[in-house]
Amino acid sequence: MTVVRTETVRQIAATLAVAASLTALASPGYSFTAEAQRQCTGDAFRLCSSEIPNISRITACMVKNRSSLSPGCRVELDKGLAMKSHRVAEQ
C-alpha cells in the first residue's frame, strides 16, 4: 500500500514539475494549457525522469532532446520557446 501511494505521489509531483517547466518557457501572454501537459508528460517521464522535480533541468532536458520529443510535445515546446524569444526581443 505504501509503495503504491509513494509512486502515485511521485507521479503527481512529476506531472506538476512538467507543467511548471512548460510554464517557465512561456511568456505572460502564453498560458500553460492542459494540452501542453497532455502532450509532454509522457516525454518528460521517458526522456527526463532523472531531472524530476528540478524544473529548470527538466526544461533544459526537453530542449536538449527536442528531436526525440513526440510531435505534439514538440509543437507545444516550440510555442513556448517562440513566445519566450519574442518577449526577449521586445525588451
Rank of each mutant, 00 (worst) to 15 (best):
M1R: 15
M1F: 15
M1L: 14
V4F: 08
E7Q: 08
E7V: 09
T8L: 14
V9G: 04
V9P: 03
Q11S: 10
Q11I: 15
Q11R: 14
Q11E: 09
Q11K: 14
I12M: 14
A13N: 15
A14M: 07
T15F: 05
T15A: 09
T15M: 09
T15H: 13
T15I: 08
T15Q: 09
L16D: 07
L16M: 10
L16C: 08
A17W: 01
A20H: 04
A20W: 01
A20D: 03
S21K: 04
L22W: 00
T23S: 06
A24N: 08
A24V: 08
A24I: 04
A24W: 04
L25F: 08
S27W: 09
P28C: 02
G29C: 04
Y30A: 02
S31G: 04
F32I: 09
F32W: 04
A34H: 09
A34W: 08
A34Y: 07
A34T: 06
Q37T: 15
Q37I: 11
R38I: 12
C40T: 08
D43E: 10
D43M: 12
D43H: 11
D43K: 13
D43F: 14
A44N: 07
R46P: 03
L47I: 15
L47K: 10
L47C: 11
S50I: 12
S50C: 11
S50P: 07
I52F: 13
N54M: 11
N54F: 09
I55K: 02
S56I: 13
R57C: 04
I58E: 00
C61T: 08
R66S: 01
R66P: 00
S67Y: 02
S68A: 15
S68V: 14
L69K: 00
P71K: 02
P71Y: 02
P71S: 02
G72L: 00
C73G: 01
R74P: 02
R74W: 06
D78T: 09
D78P: 02
G80T: 04
L81S: 10
A82W: 12
M83V: 05
K84T: 02
H86W: 11
H86M: 09
R87H: 13
A89S: 11
A89T: 06
E90W: 15
